[in-house]
């Protein structure tokens, strides 16, 4: 284990060793696995409660496939733009990273806006999360995903701030790579959501 790092004259240490980078990346990956378990259990809960409509509105009554397809496209394109941001990070091109991150954040915001629109529409139709077990499970599963996306957007904004203030330093780029994992993970969860919630709901 080398302790090779830049040290300033005041005795402080800066910089990230290769081992620390690997530990942080792996640790984040393990965290994503725990998040996957949370989503998996929310999916299981949704499936169990999917017949619990209590005489109220069902998926067929409420879901709009074009709307969901729109959300899916926004998220898929945003995953791709984050991929381009990742390439720019590895390539060391700070301005390109910022550009692609801004685009990703905007697409993400579009997704969240569409989701809020869908939720408020349903609530206005007396199909809110307190109407039935099915709706409680729907709002919680899809809403938890939406909250994760929102946290991702805030994190992107924080990272843009770091890029502007500190530049594309090794710690910043290590954080960006972990944020990319997070963003792609959320797109994977969304595949589950449209495949288990929306599409079967409409059938």
């Amino acid at each position: 284990m080398t302790d090779a790092a830049a040290t300033s004259s005041s005795g402080a240490a800066t910089g990230l060793s290769p081992e620390q980078k690997e530990e942080k990346a792996f640790g984040f990956w393990v965290y994503l696995m725990t998040d996957a378990v949370i989503f998996a259990l929310l999916f299981a809960t949704f499936i169990v409660l999917s017949r619990g409509t209590a005489g109220g509105p069902t998926g067929k009554d409420l879901f709009s496939l074009p709307h969901t397809f729109g959300e899916t496209m926004l998220l898929l394109v945003s995953s791709t733009t984050f991929g381009f941001a990742t390439l720019a990070t590895i390539g060391g091109d700070r301005r390109a990273v910022i550009g692609w991150l801004v685009l990703t954040a905007l697409l993400g915001l579009g997704f969240v806006a569409m989701e809020i629109q869908e939720f408020s529409g349903m609530i206005a139709l007396d199909a809110g999360p307190d109407r039935s077990g099915f709706l409680s499970a729907f709002f919680t599963l899809v809403g938890t995903h939406g909250v994760h996306v929102s946290v991702g957007i805030i994190s992107i904004l924080v990272m843009i701030g770091q890029l502007v203030i500190k530049g594309l330093t090794p710690p910043v780029s290590s954080r960006l790579l972990r944020l990319a994992l997070f963003w792609h993970f959320l797109d994977i969860v969304w595949i589950g959501i449209f495949s288990i919630v929306y599409l079967p709901g409409v059938l």
Partner: peptide, 20 residues
């Protein structure tokens, strides 16, 4: 989920309204 039931009146675990 239990807290959502309690605070927001959701129906994950209620007796009725499609809860389980």
């Amino acid at each position: 989920l239990l807290e959502l039931d309690r605070v927001f009146g959701m129906h994950f675990f209620t007796n009725g309204h499609g809860g389980n």
